[in-house]
Design a binder for these strands. Structure first.
Length: 327
DNA sequence: TCGGCCCTGGGG
DNA sequence: CCCCAGGGCCGA
């Protein structure tokens, strides 16, 4: 369900609701998530305080100040030089935390397809499929709900461990990607563009909706091979990724089914989709009927006129479901 | 590199 | 009833 814009929206919603809050308890359901919350983590989280809420790719990271009373960092003598949090180009601090011992804990959350991560009053009626609940010190709760259970909530005693793991598995954030890197990554493979864009090790955060929308904006067919692209094509695609994700964040992401932000409010970018979910509807640029085929195992939407140039891997799937013969 | 699979719910 | 769904991992 959630791609980068939706995850970013959750993070931005949660940040003011969680900053500085203490966690006073943890509950969990008996149903296991893909990576289950372990009961022994309860004691570690109980009494911790939220320091920051961040995003890396489609992952939500919540920095905690541990329940064990660590010596507080000495007050900085740099005065007003404090960094603004939340807008740095890297989600990770560039250096070691001053005065830190490198053992600060962290919660790492993935929303899978149907995950919802919200702060609500503790008195709010619990919905179905509630899996992990963190009680807060202000009579609210941070609730993780996920009907399909493809997501996860995990605890790391040392946030550097979690960050190292993500750094090894994820490519760069899709804002300000190095053009040379992107050209080489795209042109160096015979895979199709859809598969390339969904590959989190090349660029982190793009999913099925924004892969289709980025291809449309770049006027590139999702079935095109990476190696068939010119350098200019790659540059257009890179800029399309950045622009569509930026616009989607401004609209709080796309609410297709059950996505909600961290405060329970949905998104509006679905109203600006040019191709995703618009099979047989007119292309906003040329009015040709939008088509749908299967690439990288995922439904892929495109305009056959605007995006039909260049060499393409043969359609791996039927454009349309074969019409059923009715008796 | 790809299909299958993990799950539940909703829609045709 | 069947098929589909915003993701990612695993094994052929």
């Amino acid at each position: 369900m959630p791609e980068l814009p939706e995850v970013e929206t959750v993070v931005r919603d949660l940040r003011p609701l969680l900053a500085g809050r203490g966690i006073t308890g943890v509950r969990q359901s008996k149903h296991k998530l893909r990576r289950p919350w372990k009961p022994q983590w309860n004691a570690a989280v109980n009494g911790a305080r939220v320091e920051a809420v961040r995003r890396r790719g489609k992952w939500i990271l919540i920095d905690l100040a541990g329940a064990e009373p660590n010596p507080p960092p000495p007050p900085s003598l740099k005065g007003r030089g404090e960094k603004r949090s939340g807008n740095s180009s890297s989600p990770f601090p560039s250096g070691k935390r001053a005065g830190g011992l490198g053992s600060s804990p962290l919660l790492r959350v993935h929303l899978g397809m149907t995950g919802q991560f919200t702060v609500v009053p503790a008195s709010a009626a619990p919905p179905d499929h509630l899996h992990v609940v963190f009680a807060l010190d202000n009579a609210h709760e941070l609730r993780y709900r996920d009907p399909r259970r493809f997501g996860s909530v995990e605890y790391f005693a040392n946030r550097a461990d979690a960050e190292a793991e993500l750094s090894a598995e994820l490519g760069p954030e899709p804002f300000g990607i190095d053009a040379t890197y992107f050209r080489a990554a795209v042109r160096g493979t015979a895979r199709n563009l859809k598969a390339i864009l969904l590959d989190q090790t090349i660029v982190a955060g793009v999913g099925n909706i924004y892969a289709d929308e980025a291809c449309f904006r770049a006027k590139l067919h999702p079935g095109r091979t990476g190696k068939s692209l010119s350098a200019a094509d790659c540059d257009r695609l890179r800029e399309a990724i950045e622009s569509v994700l930026t616009r989607a964040i401004e609209s709080r992401g796309s609410t297709i089914r059950d996505y909600v932000g961290g405060s329970g409010l949905g998104g509006g970018f679905q109203n600006e989709h040019a191709v995703y979910g618009r099979t047989d509807q007119p292309c906003p640029a040329c009015a040709a009927a939008i088509e749908c085929a299967r690439y990288a195992g995922r439904a892929s939407h495109y305009c056959p006129r605007c995006q039909d140039s260049g060499v393409r891997i043969r359609d791996s799937g039927k454009k349309k479901k074969q019409q059923r013969a009715s008796s």
